[in-house]
Each structure stands twice: as C-alpha cells, then as structure tokens.
Simulated scan of single mutants.
Amino acid sequence: MTSKIRTLIVDDESLARRGLTVRLQEFPQVELLDECQNARQALDKMVELKPDLVFLDIQMPGMNGFELLREVKARGLELPVVVFVTAYDQYAIKAFEVRAIDYLLKPVDHDRLQQTLTRVEKNLAEREREQQQQRMLNLLADATGEDCEAILRKLAENQDMGTARYPEHIAIKESGEITRVAINAIEWVDAAGDYMCIHANNETHILRRTMKELEDELNPNRFQRIHRSAIVNLEQIEKLCSRQNGEYHIILKNGKELKVSRSYKERIKRLILTT
C-alpha cells in the first residue's frame, strides 16, 4: 500500500488503549486517527473519520463491540477492517463470524501485531482492487449501456468489450430530401404502423424503420422505451404522474403527455430518480 492505514482504537480501558498506541507507533505504515473509550464515541468517530482499520475491544459498558458493528451496518456505513482486541478468548469464533480479520489477546506483543498488520495490508489492497474493478465496470456500463453483470460475463468469455458508439445524428429521408436530426434533440418517438414518428425541435419527421432497429441506435442511458410503441428522451421528462385508474403518464418539458405501460412503469420510475 502507498498510503498509510488510517486507524482507530476503541477500548474502555485507558491502559489498554495506551499500550496498543505505543505498539502501533513502531509501525510507520499506521496512522492513528484517534482513541475512543466507548462504542458510542467510536460510532461518531467512524462516521466522521471513516477509518481503514479499527482495533475493537469486545466487552465494554453499554454497547459492546459486536453491537457496535451491527449499528454501523444498520446505518448503511461501510465497515472498516476490524481487529478484535480482548482479554478473553471465548469470543474468537463469534469474532470471525462477523468477518473480523483477526483476534488479538491482551497484552498484544510486537510480533503478533506485525502478523495482524500484514493481513490488514493484504485485505485493504484487495479491497482497493475490487473498488478499481467496480469503477471500471461502471465506466464501461456508462459507455456501452450494458449492466455490470453482462460486462463481467463478456469479460469471462473473452468477448469484445469495445464501447458502443451511438450516432450523434440520424438521417431521415422525406419527400426526396435527407434531413439530419440531432439525436439529443429528439424528445420522443412513437410508432405509426411501419413508420416511426421522430419528434424533435417542435417538428415531426417520418422514418421507415422498426422500433427495435431505432432503439438499438439510441443510447439507453438517455432513451428508454415507455410503451411497446413509444421511446422517450429521459432528459425531456418533466414529471411522472399517476392517475386514479392506476395508469402512469409522463409529462415532457414541452407539455406533451405520454402513457407509460405497466411493464415499463417501475423501470421508468427508477431511471427518473437516478437520472
């Protein structure tokens, strides 16, 4: 690791905290953020400081070490690497059940602490690799319009991961003329028999193509089907409305109202919340 291990000590015994602090000063890769004398204080510090590593006592007055970890998870916080430090060995099995990386008995000696920190460094390095992989997957998902699971399957099967390039314009032939319409200007598309009606810049263009063919040319991060015969530009959606009969409609920025079919309702709701 290139950065230091940002560390928090949690123990109700001041002598134990001091002893561990002195030991940790022997390891230059460790940055001690703070010491906490109870779990409530530790919870606040974990929210504020977001440590990489916590040395955690188990038996403390009020909230014990296990209860602290449950509270951290209940709040939706990311758990740091946890090393339990205690005078009792009967909690060892339970400690590993909550995925603590190690279990140290007081008083902690130098060699045993060194072994623990080696394990911590390996664990943090693995976490960083996984986070980097997830960031890359998210970038690929944004570029290709595919979800992360589909990308992972392609990678596992050595399939081509070249990013999909969506056109910036679409050529529409009408009355012997060809009109180039900017993709981003399209507000919505609806089907009219064997034709597509492309609505953009207060104009309607007729395109002879199937809905599926057109959908494949449009970036799914911006354009989504709301009905089997309608596609909408998500950036043009002003609001989503529910009717007394249970139907949903979207209102575009230009005032146009479009019905959302039941099969697409939940997906459109999620996309509106995240777009």
Rank of each mutant, 00 (worst) to 15 (best):
K4P: 08
R6V: 02
T7L: 05
V10F: 07
S14E: 07
L15K: 08
L24H: 11
Q25A: 13
Q29N: 09
Q29M: 13
E31T: 08
L32N: 14
L33E: 14
N38M: 12
R40I: 00
E48I: 10
E48N: 13
L53M: 07
L56C: 10
Q59W: 06
M60W: 04
P61Q: 06
R70Q: 14
V72Y: 03
R75L: 04
P80C: 11
V81R: 04
F84S: 09
F84H: 11
D89W: 06
Q90G: 01
K94M: 05
K94H: 04
A100T: 06
D109S: 02
R112L: 00
L117H: 01
L117P: 01
T118C: 06
R119A: 13
A125D: 01
Q133N: 09
D142R: 13
C148T: 14
E149G: 01
R153L: 07
Q159H: 10
Y166D: 02
E168P: 00
H169G: 01
A171I: 03
I172V: 14
E174K: 03
E174A: 00
S175K: 04
V181K: 06
A182E: 11
D194R: 00
E203Y: 09
L214Y: 04
N219K: 07
Q224E: 05
L234C: 12
K239W: 00
S242P: 10
R243T: 14
Y248L: 14
I250G: 10
K253C: 15
V260S: 13
S263Y: 07
Y264A: 13
I268M: 13
